[in-house]
Design a protein around this nucleic acid. Structure first.
Length: 976
RNA sequence: GCGGGGGUGGCUGAGCCAGGCCAAAGGCGGCGGACUUAAGAUCCGCUCUCGUAGGAGUUCAUGGGUUCGAAUCCCAUCCCCCGCACCA
């Protein structure tokens, strides 16, 4: 497979020790090899007979634009897990497909066809679409196809994702639609779909529903449900819109814009008085409305209207702050609880002339007093009054008024308790009772409902967007039995990280009916009504099942893919009268792969897609086919900021790979944070990863060139130490991979082990045969551990080393033969001794005056005397209990004689033993300290360029420092 | 407001679940050295404060508490980020 270039290179430079790290060249070679051999195509037949296959999925990409580096990580994390499981011997399926359902692609095409600047710049500048290709993008599927092929697929292949490409499909494919049709017919039969009214965004100009993408202004607008309090004026209903229906008992008057247009209209057989602007909205919200008479607001001003709850008559006052465009254009005034209303009332009272102008007796206005209906801590009896007075607000133009109003609303909502007039609702918190209160009065006919946006919304066509009520089909996620089943899936699956489990449960509880169809868009038509399309979040709930058969379904004629076919496929031969053989054949594939072992997905999808996924699996499939696990992934930032394709603030995978190589990109994405944590793509960091990989490559290359004995030579302590550390690394990496902790795993295999190697190289002669054997063994193991992360580089090196690519070599096991606590303890002591000497040296070198010992000629190391060692053993036996140790030790007359010295020593040793692992303490207490240091004298001598004198305390020593076990006395000495 | 996550040394970012080996990994940046004609790359050392011997002091948002011992556990407070839908 090697390209001629390499061979030539080697021959032309026979002196070169090996190969330069050239990621572009070597990665391309492996890509070709994988494609040619179909390396990642997975079939049931590939499995060892008793094997449990692994099926992992990731949300299929939505190609309404190009792929950026954030997407790259989304797909690389599962790839690493897939590669890991393969090395563990599993038959692994990792498929991908394309989600095109809905309106975003259509919207993008529309904007392109209109020649919108912004859209053109995204396509040309951000995604480098060639000028002459732009016309291909003018159909929805043409657009999708371009980004699928030129961006996603290419990006994924460049990254080396181990995808089975035979199974790709789009959600607009006719076979897929048959599958969705089956799903929705089944759900309807089971009573989980329901027809009803639902608020949608509706453009009054285009006369059709619009999506967020069609909106020019007010994208953030929320639906607000106003309660209409049906005040009466003779036989006429005067519906007053409020967001606080519970304040109805505190209404003292009403307000109308006197100069605005109002109408008397027949609404569902009643006569209503509302603003002219409200007419169309009411019509759109499923009311029959016929305008009878147009009037100005002044018509009702000065009249009295009747509160449907209290029966009180209240005066209608003129007010310019009333917006006739909002809701019904008639509002009720609750001056005790709304600072706005309170101030407005004060101003009305002060303006006798204006009142008189509308034929209102100023005395009647003066008589209006706030009526408190709830009490809230921290405010006076009339909360609005205290709020206004405290803030020093005197007129309605004061900007502080808005804040005062908002604060009081909030406070009253969470802490206000309704007064005794509220009967069954009295004494309760507004927060707890508002909905119940509203519903109760709505049911008895005193209240109505109207939907309105929280701000003005304007369509891209320039038309006003309003709320319309439309007939639609809902998925009944509010169904109790269904919720229970979904909870059960959650309780039985693996939630990674574990703290997301509660979020699923929370979402399940909170989900309501979900409107699952739209008026237009790509995708599957509602089977029983062609006018509607099943929306994207609803056609993507069980598609993982489709992967298991997608490639083989191509051979089945579309019209055979009916209800029976899929019933037989998913539920077996007994589920239908006459099961098609084809379906039963495919059933084996489905049976083999399902369930999904892990789904890797984004954290913001918990609140919709992922929970839908759980709901639908819970309902449509049996328990053994339920999702086994979900791994949540964090968000990506670019140089500390959110990525945004419209601002051009993105990195494209193709460019990054060109610059750094796919292995570097992968390694950075997986090693900079755990999958569920947010990560930050920073160029300097990525460049540094490339350097590290290159250094790794160079070292490995030298190792391979240097060769090693076939037979294992006699190993030195240092070799045994390194091999022991290697076993711990294998253990750590494996454990981390099992928990999908890609960062911990790669950190342990790569960086942490580099630290060990650093000590090893410093400590020992690496050209010894035993060292070469050791290093080669270490390299081979590490290549396997790193293979899931950097497959190109490790495959190449491992193949050169052993003849087999790393990905085809089994995952390393811990080799107990090489686990050696004694050697680790001994080596740790030497390392510590080295550090201590260095510390002393440093301290002396820092001195203001010159201290000759800072550059010693001789280092005297004195190992603690045997009796101290005995005391240490006692400390170990007594488990670090100082009192018990002293008791035991003092029975020895020799020690008793030493009194205080023994006490001090025990204190230090107890301190040392506490907090250390028992196994470590055990190994240390077994250690022959003197022998350990003796074996390291040559090393120390070399390290400090000084003679090393090792002695035992109490011989003929004149050590001035005290030695204690495991802490020998150190003296630096300089000749005059 | 509700739900979730977080505040660590110049920056970034581990550690916290299972308290002690934590003055606290790694990376970046900075300083010094080796190599080099030189630069880069690479390698080695240093990078909270004080200190002429492996030490001491003060740190992990703030304030309390538990403990022989707290970055880690508990309580309170302040601040930051994300989601809250019918949209992928």
């Amino acid at each position: 497979m090697r390209k001629p270039g390499i061979g030539v290179n080697l021959c032309a430079h026979p002196d070169d020790t090996g190969m330069e790290y050239d990621p572009q060249e070597l990665e391309e070679r492996w890509r070709e090899r994988w494609a040619e051999t179909g390396r990642y195509e997975a079939d049931p037949a590939d499995a060892a007979s008793d094997d449990d296959p692994t099926f992992i999925t990731v949300p299929y990409p939505y190609p309404s634009g190009g792929m950026h580096i954030g997407h790259a990580r989304t797909y690389t994390v599962p790839d690493v897990y897939a590669r890991y499981r393969r090395q563990q011997g599993d038959n692994v399926l990792f498929p991908i497909a394309w989600h095109v359902t809905g309106t975003p692609i259509i919207g993008a095409v529309e904007r392109l066809k209109k020649g919108e600047e912004k859209q053109l710049s995204v396509l040309r500048d951000t995604y480098d679409v060639p000028e002459d290709t732009l016309t291909d993008l003018e159909t929805p599927m043409g657009f999708a196809r371009y980004f699928i092929e030129q961006h996603y697929k290419q990006g994924m292949q460049s990254l080396g994702l181990s995808v089975d490409w035979r199974r790709e499909f789009t959600t607009n494919d006719e076979r897929y639609s048959k599958f969705i049709t089956w799903q929705y017919e089944t759900l309807r039969d089971r009573g989980l779909l329901e027809k009803g009214l639902h608020p949608v965004k509706y453009c009054t100009n285009e006369k059709q529903p619009v999506t967020t993408h069609d909106i020019l202004e007010g994208e953030e607008a929320e639906f607000q449900e106003y309660t209409l309090v049906r005040f009466g004026h003779g036989d006429t209903v005067v519906p007053m819109a409020t967001l606080r229906p519970e304040t109805v008992r505190g209404v003292t008057n009403a307000y109308i814009a006197p100069d605005a247009d109002y109408v008397y209209a027949d609404v569902d057989g009643e006569q209503w008085f509302v603003s002219a602007a409200a007419v169309e909205k009411l019509q759109l919200q499923a009311h029959d409305v016929t305008v009878e008479r147009r009037v100005s607001g002044a018509e009702l001003v000065g009249e009295r209207v009747t509160n449907p709850i209290t029966g009180d008559d209240v005066l209608v006052l003129p007010a310019d702050f009333v917006d006739p465009e909002n809701a019904t254009g008639v509002v009720m005034s609750v001056p005790a609880h709304s600072p706005d209303d309170y101030v407005a009332l004060q101003e009305a009272k002060a303006d006798d002339a204006r009142m008189a102008e509308y034929g209102i007796d100023p005395a009647d206005v003066d008589a209006i007093e706030p009526v408190p209906i709830l009490s809230v801590e921290g405010y006076g009896e009339v909360p609005a009054q205290s709020a206004v007075e405290e803030a020093g607000i005197t007129d309605s133009a004061d900007p502080a008024l808005e804040k005062a109003t908002k604060d009081l609303y909030n406070k009253e909502f969470h802490a206000g308790r309704l007064n005794d007039d509220y009967g069954e609702f009295a004494g309760e918190l507004v927060e707890d009772v508002r909905t119940r209160f509203r519903d109760a009065h709505r049911d008895e006919g005193a209240f109505g409902t109207m939907q309105e946006f929280s701000e003005d919304v304007v369509c891209r066509c320039g038309g006003d967007v309003v709320v319309a009520e439309q007939d639609t089909w809902f998925l009944r996620y509010n169904d109790e039995a269904w919720k229970q089943k979904a909870h059960r899936v959650v309780s039985e699956m693996d939630a990674i990280p574990e703290n997301t489990r509660g979020e699923y449960d929370h979402t399940i509880d909170w989900l309501n009916e979900w409107p699952c169809i739209r008026n237009y868009g790509l995708g599957t038509r509602l089977p029983w009504d062609d006018d509607f399309v099943i929306e994207p979040l609803s056609d993507s709930t069980v598609y993982m099942a489709y992967y298991t058969i997608a490639h083989r379904l191509q051979d089945v004629p579309v019209d055979e893919l009916d209800r029976e076919f899929f019933d037989a496929l998913f539920y077996g031969a007994d589920a239908v009268d006459d099961a098609p053989d084809r379906a039963l054949e495919l059933r084996e594939e489905w049976d083999y792969w399902y369930p999904v072992d892990y789904r890797f997905s984004a954290n913001d999808l918990i609140s919709n897609h992922l929970t839908f996924y759980l709901f639908h699996h819970a309902e449509l499939f049996d328990r053994p086919q339920w999702p086994q696990g979900i791994v949540i992934m964090g968000m990506g930032l670019l140089e500390g900021e959110k990525m945004s394709s419209s601002k051009g603030h993105v990195v494209l995978p193709g460019k990054a790979i060109e610059e750094y190589g796919a292995d570097t990109v992968r390694f950075f994405l997986l090693n900079s944070a755990e999958p569920w944590q947010d990560y930050d793509w920073r160029d300097d960091q990525v460049a540094s990863v490339k350097n590290q990989l290159e250094r790794f490559w160079n070292r490995a290359d030298e190792r391979i060139e240097a060769g090693a004995p076939d037979e294992r030579p006699e190993l030195e302590q240092e070799d045994r130490w390194l091999l022991s550390k290697l076993q711990q690394t294998v253990r750590d990496v494996t454990e981390a991979m099992e928990a999908s902790e890609t960062r911990s795993a790669s950190q342990a295999a790569f960086y942490n082990f580099e630290e060990q190697l650093r000590w090893y190289r410093r400590r020992t002669e690496t050209e010894r045969p035993a060292a070469r054997w050791t290093l080669q063994h270490v390299l081979e193991t590490r290549l396997r551990l790193l293979a899931p992360f950097v497959p190109f580089l490790t495959n190449e090196l491992h193949e050169r080393l052993t003849g087999t690519p790393a990905e085809d070599a089994p995952w390393p096991d811990v080799d107990e033969e090489f686990e050696d606590d004694a050697v680790e303890a001994s080596e740790a002591q030497i390392e510590r001794l080295t550090e201590d000497i260095k510390g002393i040296q440093q301290s002396l070198a820092n001195a203001e005056e010159d201290v000759p010992e800072a550059d010693p000629d001789r280092i005297r190391i004195t190992v603690a005397a045997d009796w101290k060692r005995d005391v240490f053993h006692t400390v170990v036996e007594e488990g670090g209990n100082q009192g018990a140790v002293m008791g035991t030790v003092m029975q020895d007359p020799d020690l008793r004689e030493r009194g205080n010295a023994v006490n001090d020593l025990v204190g230090e040793l107890v301190d040392f033993v506490r907090g250390r692992e028992e196994s470590e303490v055990a190994a240390l207490s077994e250690l022959d300290e003197f022998a350990a240091y003796e074996a390291a004298t040559a090393f120390l001598s070399r390290e400090f360029d000084a003679d090393v004198v090792l002695q035992l305390e109490g011989e003929d020593t004149d050590a001035t420092k005290h030695a204690i076990p495991l802490r020998p006395a150190i003296e630096l000495e300089a000749d005059e």
